[in-house]
């Protein structure tokens, strides 16, 4: 009998399970470390992925709502009334394939996509506004069908 090996075992560990306990301990170390590092980086990581600091947290919140409900007019109300109804209650714009197992149809959000979505929307809105204001001045009008003889 190897008395030295037996003597070196941790309290409560028998020789039969010593290898398993050793590997469990290593896995526990890895799990704890990864869990803590992941927990520490989750909030800043998500904020950066979603567009911070280019976008403020409230702007990120608004952009997420626009994607979620497929509605460019959504804005993140903050601070939200304490006993107000849920912000999305009664909305009718979100897109899904409805059924017993519904399937959402919102857009996938890649790295800094919310910044791009916002820039594109603002450019689109500015172009539409410009078009509306310039239309009467340049004398061009929508073609009108010639009157019937």
């Amino acid at each position: 009998m190897n008395t030295k090996a037996k003597k070196d075992l941790p309290l409560g560990t028998t020789e039969t399970y010593s290898t398993m306990h050793k590997w469990l301990q290593r896995a526990l170390f890895v799990c704890l470390t990864c869990l803590v590092i992941e927990g520490a980086f989750t909030l800043p990581g998500i904020a950066i992925w979603m567009g911070w600091p280019t976008l403020s947290l409230q702007q990120i919140c608004s952009e997420l709502e626009k994607v979620r409900y497929s509605d460019d007019s959504r804005e993140c109300i903050y601070p939200y009334p304490l006993f107000g109804p849920s912000e999305g209650a009664g909305q009718t714009t979100a897109k899904d394939v409805w059924g017993i197992q519904p399937k959402p149809l919102y857009r996938r959000i890649g790295f800094r996509d919310l910044v791009r979505f916002r820039d594109e929307r603002l450019a689109r809105q500015a172009a539409e506004k410009k078009k509306q204001t310039e239309a009467p001045d340049d004398g061009t009008q929508a073609p009108v069908a010639a009157p019937a003889p």
Binding site: L64, R68, Y78, Y80, P102, P104, I109
Partner: peptide, 22 residues
């Protein structure tokens, strides 16, 4: 309905689990 939750949780949902975004 807090701002931090609507960024953290729905952001996490959009990235990893649609249950927290849908």
């Amino acid at each position: 309905h807090t701002l931090i939750n609507r960024v953290l949780t729905t952001g996490w949902g959009a990235m990893f689990d649609g249950g927290y975004f849908w």
